[in-house]
Design a protein around this nucleic acid. Structure first.
Length: 644
RNA sequence: GCCGGCGUAGCUCAGUGGUAGAGCAACGGUUUCGUAAACCGUAGGUCGGUGGUUCAAUCCCACUCGCCGGCUCCA
């Protein structure tokens, strides 16, 4: 007999060899949710696995991330089976579950068309309908290689040859067999809602030197309702696309004639950006940063010294000749801030030195990667460089992290994830320096009480970094902030300060951006709010809507009254009905609409309507200013004072 | 950069091997109006660009530029 339990319950005795499913049934672990797999002592297994030792059993359903992955993994096998049945010459490669679904890559003589996908989906649904049992096979590596070689599945052979294990597991449903670690759901009928979404090219093993494969994306859910909810969410994402909203709200454009990846900020977008930048500057002054400005080009030699020419060349534009030397459009701000630091002798008493700049940089990005405001060729980093002594490092990093969450929080983001990236393959500096810097970052994360994950090998060539990802209104995560420690540039540029001991020391540099880039952050904000910016960011805070042209004078008076108080006002004096004006203001997502007619003109009041229909009734002009003030974060009000 | 799709008026989109339409916007007029679309009229396009096939190309072909979905990369 063996002792088995589910978490939080007393173990019970079972005969050796009992299946996990039977044990779970007796233990009452199947519950209401559809359980299709199990974790035995923490290891994911098939429901039908036979148990031969004591252990705890955790039922897995679609509700857990592990369960979801298993569910989608079986789904991708079903898709692969359908593809093989529809297109026998397609060779299978790999097909994992991903965040929102799954994909499978096939080597096929031509791309799959939408009609192909339709056909494959129908076939897959038939496979689900026939509820084939999914069973685990085991064989030796040699046998498996022979099996796939005989079937002409050369990619599978290549995968097998790379596996260290001698014993290989495969999963079979009907005639279809796929190499797989498992586990899987017990039968194909468990997949309740199944949909193929798109097809695209993808390189074998993700390497552009390898052949291009045909990837099919799909998703699956335990119910049609859940699938529909997911599809609705995709619709919502489309509706909120910053490129679409940017056009609709007239915030920015990217034009052929100007060049791809280069942003033209229209007045309303520029207004929002201005507010963001003013807030940013004021807060940096409040946080003991000093502002600097730097040029957009510099001698090429500067980039040789910084190491960018060696490590960043593929992202830099070609240099240009100026008189007898070469100049380079800047891809980074750091060397300039370094040169400001170097402009005179520094004492330990000066440290830390914190230089901030909204620095515009230009990077050559390959045409296929450009994406609206999120990935561009010219952008403005909310950059700063902190020069400090080694013993100030951890505290400086900690303060940066605190500053980051404060800034992002003010913009409406409250969910953060932190990632610690360590030494990449292509790197400068000694291992010792890397260790020291990584430890400092780790210490700052721990002391600040932040949960974080490690991203091994994802650091920058000159040092390790912490990245902060935020979650937006639709639950998507975006990387904005980055904090990078750098022992390397201070050395390259021979930076120094005179210490307490009268001797020369080398400062440590911290590179940091809180928002990342103004362009990307603006794009994220735009999607986060779906274009309905909070009052403090809205390009137009109040729109004044006279009932008829008779009320134009009073409307102008109200507008001017609000404008002189610093409120961003628009007047809609067109000869149109107020209903139309409201409709258009609503579409323009203006937070407050002020309707003025005879009643208001007589009593020197305004009638206020909020975005989305709520009528606040009649109030005085002072009241409406208070309304705006109430909707402005304290930190922003403080900021405007600091900027004088 | 690679694979696939797409490019028609300011915007959203129809359409055809015989040199183009709709709605909204714009402009002119009528209306002077109370919380999500008043009415009438006018104007607007070398159908992304270049070359080719054809009696004839916006439509077919090639190249090119750009956009979109992916791959790869990334603030």
């Amino acid at each position: 007999m063996i002792n088995l339990s589910i978490p939080g319950q007393e173990p019970q005795a079972f005969p050796r060899g009992i299946s996990a499913k039977d044990a779970l049934t007796k233990l009452g672990g199947l519950g209401s949710a559809d359980v299709f797999a199990v974790k035995v002592n923490g290891v994911e297994k098939d429901l039908m696995v036979s148990l031969n030792e004591d252990g705890t059993l955790e039922p897995l359903s679609f509700d857990s991330s592990e369960g979801k992955e298993i569910y989608r993994h079986t789904s991708t096998h079903i898709m692969a089976q359908a593809v093989k049945e529809c297109f026998p010459t397609a060779q299978m490669t790999i097909g994992p579950a991903i965040e929102e679904g799954f994909f499978y890559d096939f080597a096929f003589e031509r791309p799959f068309t939408p009609e192909d996908l339709e056909k494959i989906e129908q076939r897959a649904k038939a496979i689900i309908e026939s509820n084939l049992p999914v069973t685990r096979l085991e064989m030796s590596k040699t046998e498996a290689i022979a099996y796939y070689q005989a079937r002409g599945e050369l990619y599978k052979v290549e995968i097998l040859e790379g596996l260290p294990d001698e014993q290989i597991s495969l999963y079979q449903q009907g005639e279809f067999v796929d190499l797989c670690r498992g586990p899987h759901v017990p039968s194909t009928g468990q997949i309740k809602a199944f949909k193929l979404l798109s097809s695209a090219g993808a390189y074998w093993r993700g390497d552009e030197r390898n052949p291009m494969l045909q990837r099919i994306y799909g998703t699956s859910f335990p119910s049609e309702e859940a699938l529909q909810k997911h599809l609705d969410n995709l619709e919502e994402i489309k509706k909120r696309d910053h490129r679409k909203l940017g056009k609709e709200l007239d915030l920015f454009s990217i034009q052929d004639e100007t060049g791809p990846g280069l942003i033209l900020w229209h007045p309303k977008g520029a207004q929002i950006r201005l507010i963001m930048e003013n807030f940013w500057r004021a807060q940096h002054l409040a946080h003991h940063y000093e502002m600097v400005y730097s040029p957009h080009v510099a001698r090429l030699d500067l980039w040789k010294t910084s190491g960018h020419l060696d490590f960043y060349r593929e992202n830099m534009y070609a240099s240009m000749p100026v008189e007898s030397s070469e100049y380079q459009l800047k891809p980074m701000n750091c060397p300039f801030h370094i040169m400001v630091y170097k402009s005179h002798l520094r004492s330990y008493r000066d440290l830390p030195v914190r230089y901030g700049e909204l620095g515009t940089v230009y990077r050559y990005e390959r045409s296929g990667v450009l994406h609206g405001l999120m990935r561009v060729r010219g952008f403005t980093q909310d950059d700063a460089h902190i020069f400090c002594s080694p013993n100030q490092l951890a505290e400086e990093v900690r303060n940066v992290l605190k500053f980051t969450t404060f800034m992002l929080g003010t913009f409406g983001f409250t969910e953060f994830k932190m990632y610690l990236s360590t030494r990449p393959e292509k790197a400068v500096g000694s291992l010792e320096q890397w260790d020291q810097a990584t430890q400092a970052l780790e210490a700052a994360l721990k002391e600040g009480g932040y949960a974080y994950e490690e991203d091994p090998g994802e650091g920058v060539f000159y040092g390790p970094k912490i990245d902060v990802k935020i979650q937006d209104a639709l639950g998507r995560s975006w990387q904005c902030s980055t904090v990078q420690v750098d022992f390397n540039n201070p050395q390259r540029f021979a930076l120094s300060y005179i210490g307490e001991d009268g001797k020369t020391h080398q400062p440590i540099m911290i590179h940091r951006a809180l928002l990342g880039s103004i362009e990307r952050f603006f794009g994220i904000l735009l999607e986060h709010y779906g274009g309905a910016f909070p009052t403090w960011l809205a390009p137009v805070q109040v729109v004044i809507l006279p009932i008829s042209q008779k009320h134009e004078d009073y409307a102008k008076k109200v507008g001017e009254n609000l404008r002189v108080k610093g409120c961003r006002v628009d007047l809609d004096l067109r000869n149109e009905k107020v209903g139309l004006k409201i409709r258009e203001s609503e579409k323009a997502k203006v937070p407050l609409m002020v309707v003025v007619g005879d009643r208001e003109a007589e009593t020197e009041t305004v009638s206020v309507r909020k975005r989305n229909g709520k009528n606040l009734g009649t109030m005085s002009m002072t009241d409406i200013l208070q309304l705006i003030r109430d909707e402005t974060p304290e930190a922003v009000k403080q900021g405007s004072f600091l900027l004088g």
